[in-house]
């Protein structure tokens, strides 16, 4: 990989400079918007003229002022250039697009956009801060006793969610998002716990939970909604209708530790 990277960088220099950046980019705009133009020239869009993205600027140039402020680019304007980008090719079918969002609401076209609002400062990751500035219900879940370490900077929202796509155009199975990091529990298991194979979120809320291990319900409720308890193994004296003590009820996985699947035990105990 290192060789590839070195060749790519060297090759890029060997190819020489790309078409020179238009010195005239934003010349007319710079007289009033000098900081924005200066940042723009250093950025990835540095050789793109202001008018390429800011439509309806003629009136503003003729009569500068807030009343004639040019519009921000919509997604269609961005995709005029970003049409060959595989990660954004299904944008039109994404949940964000359906919600009426434009690219500029997350991306700064001159410099990377930073989230506003001091409540989002609790997240270390910049991308997650942006997500949290709208998805406040999810942000609250990251303060629960059990949560994915987004606040702590170990994972990012965009590590699991593709903001440019949606479930409708996803080619990943329901468990594959989780097992791209949690390979140790994906098996293949000779003896599966079938609901686990279907969907991790039947039992876990990946954002946060008041219950241990991100469980959507605490044990034993989570397990008892599907399973009956056999008296012969769980009740005092193994007697029918005898009481089942708190020791057996408090944590089903204390005995059934291979709850995600086992290599050789039907009862998922090891």
């Amino acid at each position: 990989m290192l060789v590839w990277a070195s060749l790519a960088v060297l090759g890029s220099f060997a190819l020489g400079a790309p078409p020179a950046r238009a010195e005239a980019v934003g010349t007319a705009c710079a007289s009033c918007h000098e900081p924005a133009v200066a940042a723009h020239l250093k950025g990835k869009h540095g050789k793109v003229d202001c008018l390429s993205c800011h439509a309806k600027a003629d009136a503003h140039l003729a009569n500068p002022g807030p009343d004639t402020k040019p519009s921000l680019p919509d997604a269609t304007a961005c995709q005029t250039c970003h049409v060959k980008d595989a990660r954004r090719m299904n944008w039109q079918f994404s949940d964000h697009a359906k919600g009426g969002l434009a690219c500029v609401q997350c991306h700064g076209n001159h410099t990377p956009k930073a989230a506003k609002g001091s409540e989002t400062a609790r997240l270390k990751d910049g991308a997650s801060q942006l997500c949290a500035s709208c998805h406040k219900d999810v942000l609250a879940r990251f303060s629960m006793p059990s949560h994915h370490p987004v606040k702590e900077g170990a994972v990012s929202c965009v590590g699991c969610h593709d903001p440019h796509a949606g479930k409708q155009v996803s080619l990943a199975g329901k468990t594959e998002k989780c097992t791209q990091c949690h390979q140790a529990i994906r098996g293949p298991h000779a003896l599966e716990h079938p609901p686990v194979s279907e969907d991790c979120m039947g039992c876990h809320n990946p954002h946060g939970s008041p219950n241990r291990k991100l469980l959507v319900q605490a044990q034993p409720a989570l397990c008892l909604q599907c399973h009956s308890l056999a008296d012969i193994r769980h009740s005092v004296g193994a007697a029918a209708n005898a009481r089942v003590t708190g020791a057996a009820l408090r944590n089903c996985t204390a005995c059934h530790g291979a709850i995600h699947g086992s290599a050789s035990d039907q009862h998922l105990r090891f």
């Binding site: 009956s228 056999a230 008296d231 193994r233 769980h234 089942v244």
Partner: peptide
Amino acid sequence: YAYITSNRRR
């Protein structure tokens, strides 16, 4: 939810 037991394993 309902707490259900059975007299033997299913």
